[in-house]
């Protein structure tokens, strides 16, 4: 029973935690491509800034991942 609840908790945690970063990263990518289309000369700089921004947006998803990994393998 405990085992089952652990897996359920990890699944719910990861599923809900992936929602926010998914929306956020899509927004970042969309805006960056808009900016690149408007100003192709700056594309390289915008792309590297986009990657850093995405990695930071992703961090809430990564927290959910860490929590569910700890639930699965440590607790």
């Amino acid at each position: 029973m405990d085992e089952a609840i652990k897996f359920l908790a990890a699944g719910i945690c990861m599923g809900l935690g992936a929602l926010g970063p998914g929306i956020g990263e899509g927004f970042v990518a969309g805006k960056a491509i808009e900016a690149m289309a408007r100003n192709p000369k700056m594309a390289d700089k915008i792309f590297s800034n986009m990657l850093v921004g995405m990695a930071i947006t992703e961090s809430t998803g990564i927290y959910a991942l860490v929590v569910s990994l700890i639930l699965l393998f440590v607790v």
Partner: peptide, 12 residues
């Protein structure tokens, strides 16, 4: 946040 981001990505 710094440590969890790095650990989470690589371990995942």
């Amino acid at each position: 946040s710094l440590s969890a981001r790095l650990f989470g990505n690589i371990f995942a």
